[in-house]
Write a protein that binds this DNA or RNA. Structure first.
Lengths: 131, 131
DNA sequence: TTCCTTGCAAATCGTTTGCATAATG
DNA sequence: CATTATGCAAACGATTTGCAAGGAA
């Protein structure tokens, strides 16, 4: 499968790069439609899937049943606010040591882990103080 | 909301307790139907949701888009085989220290984390050696 | 001209829900 | 009797897919 250039795909990737809040496919669709009014949701999904398969973006699953996408493919962890649902980046060291912890008593091969944290985000925390 | 006893709910919980492989709702449905041929998928879902809300079972999400259920509610981690898709328990220490690592440079409140590991399970690992 | 990509709509799949009826306390 | 639980089927929401037409190499 040889990739051909597509303006829609470029627009999707470009939009994603302007955002650091991990938009869903639907949010991508709504925004890219400003530039390409005829783009279809199917095209958005196809390209988000393709881009994540070739490693240009990453697909994030944080347990809300909706996939989020991130143009930042550097290794980092995410935080999900249980109040407002927002997904934030965490600036923290790698946790690769937990792979060894998990592998210690395990006969198979551990090649990685998926981790995200949850709690109250800074914005919601400050609003709690007021009430 | 006061709970009333139900034979279907008992059967669902009992079935789940006999299994350590984290069945999906559909697997629960198929199996409980042997005892209750008229039980509906809706009832299975309603009870799995209810039981997990009252903390009698836990709902596991491991990124395959299908919910798995576990009657073992003790704190433990899961492993997902990227070859055969099976979900296994890991016998390992708690990773609660990673909450502090994550919270160090973060202004909100971290109340917990979700972690699962992936790789090749013991069964698939031994099959690899043969090929 | 080859064949990848698109737009559109229909289909899929896991899960939830409305409703009338049955079972529980 | 009051209320929760059930079975059934329809509805749902996110995502995928078939197909004919369009666009890139």
């Amino acid at each position: 499968m040889i990739l051909k250039h597509s303006k829609q795909r470029d627009a999707i990737k470009s939009f994603l790069m302007t955002r650091k809040d991990h938009p869903t496919a639907d949010v991508v669709y709504t925004n890219v439609r400003e530039e390409f009014p005829n783009i279809s949701l199917g095209t958005v999904y196809r390209n988000l899937t393709l881009l994540s398969e070739i490693g240009e973006i990453s697909r994030i699953r944080v347990g809300d049943g909706i996939d989020h996408f991130d143009a930042d493919i550097s290794l980092h962890y995410h935080f999900v606010c249980t109040h407002c649902g927002s997904v934030l980046d965490l600036n923290m060291e790698s946790l690769s040591h937990i792979n060894e912890i998990a592998g210690a008593g395990f006969d198979g091969k551990i090649s990685g882990h998926v981790t995200y944290f949850y709690g109250t985000c800074p914005k919601c925390t400050s609003q709690e103080l007021l009430s």
